[in-house]
Amino acid sequence: MKDMLKPTFVLVITAIVASALLAVVYEKTSPEIEKRAKEKLLDNLKTVFPVEGADYKPIIEDTLWCVEKEGKRLGIIFVNGMRGYASVIKVIVGVDTTGKIVGVHIPKEGLSETPGLGMKVTEPWFMEQFKGKKEEEVKLKKDGGTLDAVTAATISSRAATNAVRLGMEKYKKYLKEEEKSENEWYQKHLSEFFPDAEIKEYGDKIWMAVKDNETLGTIYLSYGEGYGGKFGVLVAVKDGKIRDIYIQSPDEGFPETKEFGCKVRENTYLKKFIGINPDEAGMIDDITGATITSEALKKAIVSGYKRVGGE
């Protein structure tokens, strides 16, 4: 018995002391480590998009920021990575609202490309040449673009340029001030559903149309994920039945194709929805050639109505 107890006891004590010690060290160092990481990040953001007094607001954690000054969007900064020769090459890129690169930074830390060859993508001359370039220009000269590759490190250079270009493509929709333009488009249409009524905000993206203390109906805004992207739908409901539907126009950011997706905006199709309960929108037929868009519309109507909670 004693043979079993003593070793157990010793090991348990050792483990407890070790964990206690580590807990203390962690407590002391972790704020510092976090602070370093934040400082480093802000430093990097300032390098690729240097604007005096600008705010760097995160849109996607650790990936995407928008640069704003006095409420005006100046551009975005994104982080993107691409497999290089021996490691993933991470690029931090600042893009202004015209789609031109303001600055590119490739951090040395964590990069393990070949020293003296692939590592040279972190040299200033390589990063400088991205400045002012548009998406389609961001390619190596040997791939038909405008950038010089690091001699004898084509793979690393190509990975870095691809990371920049693909990132620009992926995040360019954030160059527009999405929320602002959204505000404009639906505000204008709210009053069209119930003429002469007063529109009162009732909840998040939900409005009531009131006239002479009498509720005429409810309007809600919902979004569908279509073929080309997100689009907004305004639905007016009265007595549990759809009274009218408005889908944002291409000018207002409707992203679907003209030939097919846009057909969901036509009155002949939208008429089918009028008079039914929004919960039953799923029963309406899809438009041939625009199934994804039609499905997205129906889903948006149903999910938006759930949010309203009936009437």
Binding site: V25, E32, I33
Partner: peptide, 13 residues
């Protein structure tokens, strides 16, 4: 682990 933490905090490079 102590060395690792301390290095990360005070000598990040």
């Amino acid at each position: 682990t102590i060395v690792d933490y301390v290095m990360k905090a005070y000598l990040p490079g």
